[in-house]
């Protein structure tokens, strides 16, 4: 992914980027309906235009620290699944990120470091694109 437009957001001082095409909508944090016996990063369900979609807390997922308050919801709409990410803030849409090193594996789809104009941004591939799937 050396070309294209990315949505850059931050979770506890770490910037991340997602391909704009993967994002369906950005929302303010709505009311959440927690599910019992779910993992800690799984914050519950939210109502998105009448559809219930699960919300993952990236801060808890990556940093083991729950996001205390506020935050934005990124609604991701793929071909197979629709889910929402709770992030700290949305920075904006940028283009022209370069891949610094290609690394396979890593937790939850974190695959590469992208160098932008303002430091390193970790790229996240959510679904298989060009054939390689790294995240479950």
């Amino acid at each position: 992914m050396t070309d294209g437009r990315y949505l850059v957001f931050a979770v506890t001082d770490q910037k991340y980027a997602l391909a704009v095409e993967d994002v369906a909508e950005i929302m303010n944090l709505p009311a959440l309906y927690p599910l019992p016996k779910a993992p800690a990063y799984y914050r519950g369900l939210m109502n998105c235009h009448g559809r219930p979609i699960p919300v993952l807390d990236l801060a808890t997922l990556y940093k083991r620290v729950p996001l205390d308050k506020g935050g934005k919801i990124l609604v991701l709409e793929g071909k197979t699944v629709t889910l929402a990410l709770l992030v700290q803030r949305v920075i904006g849409i940028v283009s022209g990120l370069h891949s610094a090193d290609q690394e396979d594996g890593g937790d939850y789809g974190v695959e590469t470091s992208l160098s932008g104009d303002d430091g390193t941004i970790r790229g996240i591939y959510l679904w298989p694109r060009q054939g390689n799937i790294s995240a479950a």
């Binding site: 437009r5 704009v20 095409e21 994002v23 909508e25 950005i26 303010n28 849409i93």
Partner: peptide, 13 residues
């Protein structure tokens, strides 16, 4: 801003 972001996303999609 959020609306613009969403508009950008919509445009991208």
């Amino acid at each position: 801003n959020m609306l613009a972001l969403n508009a950008s996303i919509e445009a991208a999609r």
